[in-house]
Simulated assay, not measured.
Amino acid sequence: MNYQQLIHDLVNAKGAPGFEDEVLEVLYNYKGSYTMQSDNLKNAYYNLDQLDPHKPTLMLDSHTDEVAFMVKAIDERGLIHIQALGGWLAEHVSAQHYLVRDRLGNYHPGISTSKPIHFMTAEERAKKITLADLKIDVGASSRQEVIEDFKITIGQPIVPATEFAFNERNQVMFGKGFDNRIGVAVSVAIMNEMQDYLKDLPFNLVAAFAAQEEVGMRGAVVTSKRVNPQMALVFEGTPSDDFTADQYLEQARLGRGPQLRYRDNSYIANEWMLKRFNQLASENNLPLQHAVREGGSTNAGSIHLSNQGVPVATLGTPTRYAHTNYCFCSYKDFENTVKLSLAFIKNLTAENFKQFELK
C-alpha cells in the first residue's frame, strides 16, 4: 500500500510540543478499524483497549511533536520574542518563514528577523547570532496591533511554515518535521499492515504516539506506564550525516535504509533485539545502517527505564537537516523501515518474551 498521502498529511500538520492536536486528527483519520484512545497529555494510542492480560505486549513508539517555538513576549514595535521548544541553532532560524497561532486557533505568517546586510558593520557580519537576538515579525507595527488585530498572545505556538513536496524521480520527500512524523507514519503503516494478523499473535500489539518528546521525552513516561509493555520498538526520524563525516563514520545516509541505534545519551539498546534485527535484515535482503551515537536521545530513554525495565530497540529513518525548517527524507527508507519492522513483529514468539521475564 502507498503511504505518501499519510506522510503528506502528518508532515503538514502543525504540532508544537504541547499542541499536537492536528497530528491527533490525522491519526484519527488513518486509524482504520482500530480504536483510538488519548490522554490528558495529548498522547494517542491504537488498539489499547484490546489488551489481553494473559499475553505480553509489544509497544510501537513514535512521537507526534516537532521542534517549534512559543510566544514569550511582544515588544512595543510588534516583534514577537520567542522561547525554543526543542533544540534549535540560531543560524537555522534567522530569516525563515513561520506560522504563529492566535488565541482563536488561526495561524498567521511570520518571518524571523534578520538585519539587512546593507546596515551591518564588518563586526556585526562576523558576530555569531543567538536565539535571543531573533524575533518573529508578523508584519505589524506595534504591540497593540499584534494583540488586538492579530489576536496573538503570550504562550501561543510557532511552527515552521514549510509544505510537503514529493520528488517522483528519486522518491525523496521534502518538508518539515520528519523528526518525527516519519516515525509516526511507520507506526501507522505497521498497524495497518498487521490488522489481519492480530488475532493470531501470541502477544498484544499497541501503537503509542507520544507528545512532548522534543522537550524531554515527557509523553513516553505516561505511555509506557499506561501500556505497560514487555518489549518496545521506537521509531524516529534520525539525523542524516551524509555530508558530515567520512564513509567509515557515517551512520545514517539518505537512501541507505533504516538506522539501527545501538546507543545514545538516553539508552543502550537491548542486545537480543539488535542481533535479531541484523539477522532479519540479512535474511530478507534489506538495507540496514548502524549507529553508535555520541549525543541525542529518543523516547527509548523513558521507555527502557519504565516499570521494571523494558527491552527496547530504535529504528530511525534518515532525515537530512533535522531540527530545521526544511528536511529531506527518502520514501524508500520509509518502506524498508516498515518491511524490517514487520519481519521482526511477524517472527516474534512467546518464547522471545519469556527470556525477559523477571526471575
Rank of each mutant, 00 (worst) to 15 (best):
R169P: 00
N167Y: 11
I182D: 03
V159F: 02
E213T: 05
Q212H: 03
D196A: 15
K176D: 00
R169D: 04
L201D: 09
K176M: 00
N192H: 15
D196M: 11
F174R: 10
S187T: 15
K151A: 15
V172N: 03
M191E: 13
D196F: 12
V159R: 02
S187D: 15
V206H: 07
M173T: 13
Q144N: 15
A210I: 01
M173D: 11
F164G: 00
R181N: 08
V159L: 03
S142Y: 12
A211Y: 01
D149A: 14
Q156H: 00
Q144P: 11
V215W: 06
F203V: 09
E168V: 01
N167V: 11
L198K: 13
L201I: 10
I158H: 10
E213Y: 06
V184Q: 05
V146N: 06
R143S: 15
R181E: 09
P157N: 11
V186M: 06
N204S: 13
E213R: 06
A140D: 07
K176L: 00
A185H: 02
K151T: 12
S187H: 12
G183V: 04
K151F: 14
F150K: 09
Q156R: 07
F164V: 00
A161P: 11
F150I: 01
E214S: 03
Q195S: 13
Q171F: 01
L198F: 05
L201T: 09
A208K: 08
N170E: 05
G216T: 07
F209W: 08
F209D: 01
E214M: 06
I154Q: 07
D200Q: 13
D149S: 14
V146C: 08
R181Y: 08
V159N: 02
Q144F: 14
A185S: 02
V159Y: 03
A165L: 13
E213N: 08
N170D: 13
L205C: 06
I152Y: 06
P160G: 02
A161N: 15
P160M: 07
E193D: 08
A185F: 02
D200I: 05
G175C: 01
D200H: 14
F209A: 03
E168P: 01
A208F: 13
I147C: 10
D179W: 06
R143M: 14
V146D: 05
N204M: 08
V184Y: 04
I154Y: 11
G177V: 08
E193W: 02
K151R: 15
